[in-house]
Computed example of a mutant assay.
Amino acid sequence: MVHIVTGDKNSGKTTKIKNLYAAHGGDGFISNKIIQNGIFYGYQLTRLSSGESIDFIYENKYAPVHWEDTLKNIRFTFYRPAFDTAYHWMHAIIRNEDSPIYIDEVGKLELNKQGFYEMIKDVVNSNKEIYIALRELYLVQFLEAFTITEYAIIKVS
């Protein structure tokens, strides 16, 4: 079953994923905000079972200068090696038959067949219990893009 944790920006989706993991176990990753001195810089990916983290996304103006392999959009710089790390984690999770699986957060990249698109297809096709966080405005597109017909909505606000 696919459980979709949805809400607006800054509504508590990541916190909900953390709480679900604490209650049900399994494995996956979350996107933790990087905030220093009250300034939002970006996100780190953190694997739930190990706490291992990797810098993932930065606001363009704060992107580390040593990042050479990146993908950029109008607002953010994405560190491509972080995608590779997440793929490595997720394939290990699927192989180990961990369940439920958690993915935080799906967005425009995936709906444009980039970012975690292929990984999400693999996870959905694994027939495991899945919790995926995404903004409410992407819900219909997400269901269509990944051909999901059986799902439950967990709305946070």
Rank of each mutant, 00 (worst) to 15 (best):
L71V: 06
I57N: 00
D55K: 10
T15A: 14
T85Y: 07
N127E: 13
I30K: 05
I34S: 04
K16D: 06
G115Y: 05
Q141N: 10
Y58C: 07
H88S: 10
E68K: 15
N37Q: 13
K128Y: 02
G38C: 09
F76E: 11
L71M: 09
N19H: 04
Y79N: 11
W89C: 12
K72N: 14
M119P: 00
D122S: 11
N112W: 05
L143E: 12
G12S: 08
V65M: 07
P100N: 12
A82W: 09
T149H: 06
L71C: 08
E68P: 00
I153G: 09
I54C: 04
N73I: 02
H24E: 12
Y87F: 14
S99P: 01
D8F: 08
L134H: 06
E150R: 11
S50V: 15
L111E: 10
D122I: 03
N10A: 15
H66R: 03
V123W: 01
G7L: 06
T77F: 05
A92F: 08
D98L: 14
F146H: 09
A133E: 02
G26H: 05
V124Q: 03
S50C: 15
I103D: 03
G26E: 03
K113I: 04
I54G: 02
G42D: 05
Y41S: 07
M1C: 00
I17M: 11
I57T: 13
E52S: 06
Q114S: 05
Y79E: 04
N112M: 12
V106C: 06
I120Y: 01
N19G: 11
N73Y: 07
D55A: 14
V124G: 05
R47M: 08
N127P: 09
G107H: 03
R80T: 09
T46W: 00
D27K: 11
F116S: 04
D84R: 15
F78P: 03
G107S: 11
T15S: 15
L143V: 14
T149L: 01
D104E: 02
K155P: 02
E97C: 06
T70H: 13
K155S: 15
S49R: 08
L111T: 08
A82C: 14
Y102I: 06
L139W: 06
K9G: 02
Y62L: 08
A92Y: 06
V106Q: 07
K61A: 09
T149F: 00
I94R: 07
D122E: 14
T149R: 02
A145S: 11
N127Y: 03
Y58V: 04
L109N: 13
D8E: 13
G42W: 00
N112I: 08
S31E: 15
H66K: 14
M1T: 11
G51M: 14
A145C: 10
R80H: 03
W67I: 10
